[in-house]
Design a protein around this nucleic acid. Sequence first.
DNA 1: TTCATGAATTAAATCGTTTTATAAGGCCTT
DNA 2: AAGGCCTTATAAAACGATTTAATTCATGAA
Lengths: 328, 328
Amino acid sequence: MKKASLKDIAESLGVSKALVSLVLNGKGDERGINKQTQEKVRVRAKELNYIPNQYARGLRIGRTNTIGVIVPDISNVFYGKLCKAIEQEAYSKGYNLIISNTYEDVQKEKKLISDLINRNIDGLILASSFDSKNEIDGLREDKFPIVLVDRVFDDFNVDSVSVSNTAGAEKAVEFLYARGVKRPVCFSISPVYISSISERIQGYIGSLKNPNDAKLVQIPHDNIAGGVASALAELKNEDYDGIFCVNNNIAKALLRELSNQGDQLKDVQIISFDDLEIFDIVHPKISAIAQPIDEIGKSAVNLLLNRFEAGDKHKPEGLVLDTVLVER
Amino acid sequence: MKKASLKDIAESLGVSKALVSLVLNGKGDERGINKQTQEKVRVRAKELNYIPNQYARGLRIGRTNTIGVIVPDISNVFYGKLCKAIEQEAYSKGYNLIISNTYEDVQKEKKLISDLINRNIDGLILASSFDSKNEIDGLREDKFPIVLVDRVFDDFNVDSVSVSNTAGAEKAVEFLYARGVKRPVCFSISPVYISSISERIQGYIGSLKNPNDAKLVQIPHDNIAGGVASALAELKNEDYDGIFCVNNNIAKALLRELSNQGDQLKDVQIISFDDLEIFDIVHPKISAIAQPIDEIGKSAVNLLLNRFEAGDKHKPEGLVLDTVLVER
DNA sequence: TTCATGAATTAAATCGTTTTATAAGGCCTT
DNA sequence: AAGGCCTTATAAAACGATTTAATTCATGAA
């Protein structure tokens, strides 16, 4: 049983391919095609289990109803949930996704972008690892529809969805103070050129009571476990009583290290950017600055769809969503 | 700057599209095309930044170098990691992925399968929520290349990659006994028709010292938190000292519930199928039957690629991988 | 001169749609 | 009988690649 094509339907009914195409695309009435004929076509299409070949269609009309998604690592819960949110919204609007991971590899990201584009995706949702917007300027010039998420660049000419990282970090510091913390320290990831991370660091420093003795630990992104361990060792004799983790990876590593050491840090308050389900079942419990992941995904898709409809006269939008403090 | 096509290259060089196509597909020598001409073509292609239109190509040759992946929920860490493993292997072999989630919705799964297939994916990797293989018989008849992962059916006519769930569950029970547990109970998910789950239950029952008083709790998959809570309440007066969770979702819910209740179950040993990073940073620590996720993904892709090459004379293979006990 | 051989290249068909421009036929007017 | 005007339907071109079956042209052999 081979797949049925337009031609099969047409021949079996003794009509033309054009007519069948018109009917199945809902243009039957508009084009004044006999109701009965229309009905016949629809019935036969169902009988033959006709499914249009999207590639022929895409070739002809230049759209494929497919959105490309590029994230650093889909097995990271944050991006997993983000992809889920994107997928649900896209699916409900009739779009499929092609998802790819960069693992923070800039070269791979470049290759992926061109790979996806020549697969005729209609648009791209990108959580980029690039250190500057230069890399995506080419896309901008080509007016390729793109939405940046999570990690954005200061550029009003491209759609983006992000959260108020600075404000989130401020909330985190305020929370620590409110819990009686006197000297908070920030566990950050390096490199810090990624917008979301640098904004969080700024927010942290900016809201310290005494910005001059900001304690900032940089942990290499490719050796988080080791970085956290040595950071804790170095801080051993320092005087601190609160920790702000810039993302969930750091918080997880911190938890693991504390667990290994038999958590002798009982009197330290911890808060992390990104909420994880596990944060309230571990010891010590970890408070969090939660991102509205579903909304980020949903907005990104809708921004892209708007762009599809408006075409060139679309005015790029930089959406900034709020975070939520989850106290534990 | 519009995208360059074969025709653009051909015209700018005064040769035919056919020649350009041949050269760029590496068939230049084989077809005896002048070396210099070949060089000219390649140079010009680069100049014009030529990228073949995959949809035209796919339409013509019937392949698209795209693999469809359908999983229940990509934001579940297990499937997230599985997708990552699949993506890495596929990418290294020149394939892209289209990933979709079913959220255990059988109707959506059906729709997704036909959606993906008419997008001309070359093959499908499927972690199915179907309760019987009937649903995929249509695909089998059409000889559509498909590999089942994680959840398989007893059917030697379709490729599959799974783990030895029964043996894994046996290991789990043995582990509990070895830790001095006398009366283990199994927290299962319902419905249990999913192969992986039912095999684990069988393994559990089969390896009990006294199968007659097997304690089996069924927790509805759409209300795991509530199910676990009421299960614990019911078991309150029962006499048990070990828990085997059939998957990570149950273990997570159990942890949360224990945490809420201030874990008054200190003397209960817990082991879960599927390992999670967090299992060793929570209290109580949770042992696990770990699945070789990377290998599952890798094998699935390679099985599919073998099938592509061998075509109809491919003999389906049911790969069963071993689990690893992680003691904590 | 003619014919075969081989090297290098190409014309044209094809994949399955969509869409534009046109046609066929019926009926009504004049 | 001819024209005009609906209604309904269709032929054919286009999208951009691949591939088969030819074609051209030079060379060497008979």
